[in-house]
Design a protein around this nucleic acid. Sequence first.
RNA 1: GGGCGGUUAACUCAGCUGGUAGAGUGUCACCGUGACAUGGUGAAAGUCGUAGGUUCGAGUCCUAUACCGCCCACCA
Length: 881
Amino acid sequence: MLENLPKTYNPKDFEDRIYKYWNDNGYFVAHIDENKTPFTIMMPPPNVTGSLHMGHALNNTIQDILIRWKRMEGYSALWLPGTDHASISTEARVVNKIKSEGKTKEELGREGFLKEAWDWTRKYGNTIKNQLKKLGVSCDWTRDRFTLDEGLSRAVEEVFIRLYEKGLIYRGDRIINWCPSCKTAISDAEVEHEDTKGSIWHIKYPIKDSHEFIIIATTRPETMLGDLAVAVNPNDERYKHLIGKTAILPLIDREIPIIADEYVDMEFGTGAVKITPSHDPNDFEVGERHGLGQCIIMNEDATINQNGGIYEGLDRYDARKKIVEDLKEKGYLVEVKDHDHAVGHCERCSTVVEPLISKQWFVKMEPLAKPALEAYEKGQLNFIPPRFGKVYANWLENIKDWCISRQLWWGHRLPVFYCKDCDEIMVTRTKPEKCSKCGSSDLYQDEDTLDTWFSSALWPFSTLGWPEETEDLKYFFPTDVLVTGYDIIFFWVVRMVFSSIEQMGEVPFKDVFLTGLVRDSQGRKMSKSLGNGIDPLEVIDEYGADALRFTLVTGNTPGNDMRFYMERVEANRNFANKLWNASRFVLMNLEEDISKHEFSFEDLEEEDRWILSKLNKTIKEATENLNKYEIGLAAGKVYDFIWDEYCDWYIEMVKSRLYKEEGASKKTAQKVLLYVLKNILKLLHPFMPFITEEIWQHLPDTKEALILSSWPTYREELNFQDSEKAIEFIKSGIKGIRNARAEMNIIPSKKSKQIFVTTDEEIKEILNKGQRYFLNLASADEVEIREDKEGIDEDNISVVLDRCEVYLPLKDLIDYEKEIERLEKEKEKLEGEIKRVVGKLSNEGFVKKAPEKIVQEEREKKTKYEEMLEKVIERLESLKK
RNA sequence: GGGCGGUUAACUCAGCUGGUAGAGUGUCACCGUGACAUGGUGAAAGUCGUAGGUUCGAGUCCUAUACCGCCCACCA
């Protein structure tokens, strides 16, 4: 029993043990059960070589709360975990690792490198999973998946082939974002735009066979090496006469045409734009329209290539510097102005990306985006909070094709084969024997791999065995809710939706719960470079997983960022300690035969009915909150019930019965204590799984594990409105007495021998039932409740309450000055209230238009306050005499 | 250039469909009382960013506006 344990809560003593107990007994494993409704969550797969951060802790806690709750509600709850191969990030780490060993990727070759990568994955792949276990995640580890698993790879190939055959995947020369550091193409979503203070250079381009110049403006002067035209707006009077003429590119003396294109904004810069089709998306389009061709001037590491003449070999920024110097020296530079503009950076390594033309593979997005948008518009996708729906829709409305090929080795290699002889493209799962066109057997596979998000886009169904028609897939798909950060709506949420609609014919989940960012106490983003990250594992080590979990889900709202404060974790640890000790108290006061009995309704006393009714209400409201994903509110209600109602009031009220009485009343108190505690543990379990299970295991008559127990439900027969009212009345009486005593500085150990309460008949009845509460809770030896004042010494302290007055015979202890002061304050307060109520009631509009109920309430308040004021004044007068 | 969020007690945040502002922490006073000092009791503390409007009544709805922050966007 618990009383043998240390009296302070020490989560380290049991958290690991409890996790093992659940896991070893298979309690996390989901079963296909046609008698149950499935409830499915797919865990957003963390990077396989990553480690746990607060973001993971937050969204996995939320998922765990939902899955534990639904499991208790009787659903067949599947929470499927897994990891992502994270192509670009993992590859970078492995490259670093082999670099530290003095080797390069190229030296190892593809196979050698992949071997290294797999070794790395096996070495670090379990780290994050073990860390997640510390958090208490109740996911089904028997269904653990990895995006590079055979099955998932098969799904990736299948989707690639299907989309290709439908014409939704194509290969082409397009301007893509090139990261010179990762040396791969990246998608638009992977580019982060950052406002940067830069310059804009105005440069003179001479006109051939003329002394005229045309002045262009550019923010990237080095790209002039690739200029193939100068463009002006066709309606621009300044330049009309130059259209069709030829300009001479300074420094390298290339002749380029001056063309007219609507794209040029006459208002901006000089109204003349250099056109570099290979290095700018707009210029690319202009180039296409005018048949300008291409001129690539950079290598894959962003140094200038042979097309750059004397600048060949220079890094792009060195080249810029040199070119500007040369232009200046030769008199072509007209002016330099400061210019702020957005510069794209690689999301992964922060290197400035270079837009350049490249042959890559793309997914044609429009046909896929349309149904994904419609699904949202038809209400098949529900965002929490709803505002993110607009973000989702807006992205889809402005969709561009998705560049999916990456010049990396770690990932799913494109199932694409080329014929060396005729360049035929063959998209098949395995390498064909012969070219389907010319019959040549000289074939090779595309070197590229797919964007990581291509495989994670399939996660909701590939993890269940698709393209096989598995039992799991039939039963658990579609999933119910996706829990993830708002920062990956574009990367992941959108792509899962359209992939699922395309392949499965329906949305992959009904609800999308978006979490905010966990920031440090100063509101900064937690980051490695700032060193301000708080390690969830350290928090768990110090305060326990339950306290961390509770901290992450309370006091904030979905989709809003939150600041992380150690003080809050500590407060929640204290809450756990409170529950721990309340449970110890209950166990210490139970008798052996308690387990055989449920309380009987006839034996219930007022406070029993009150706490049962309050519990009932808490169950109802917390469940409603959970149904609406109001996790923080649900947790808050359970917290308040446990601390404020159960610990602070019920336990205190019931003590006299446990200590002094014998028989039925005592027994009932024990039964109710236990009944409510059991329900508390159930209600709190999703939020604080460890401590609740640990306590539960020490309770009598708990055969099954708490994790498998049933979620409490509202019981109409436990709704005791009258008892609630009565106890609330008594509580206010006790509070009034305590308040008066505290203000008079009368310490509780100085008991009032006898308390007199004068009141009317109705209240007398209520108070009579609750007499004994005053004894313990208001420091009295004896309470006398009556309807008259006969024989009561008017010099005692008197507390004026609604419909009753309490006299505390503490004559020798009273400081009359203070008592008058206290009563004056009371008087002022009441007068204020009366003024407000009277104001309201004398407002004709209010009385006429407000609902009858509200008006009635105000009238009652008026009477009540006036009565109280009268008594207070009476007291004051008698004291001042 | 668009879009979104925040602005409530000293601090961090709740506040669902409009009806006398809440919590945690911190502060102050008192308390080792037989579950808990990781505790108990009590107290102080807010013109709910600003200005209008709708309403009998607005932190809550509408319109402006200020400040902070985020996202999206090809203006060279």
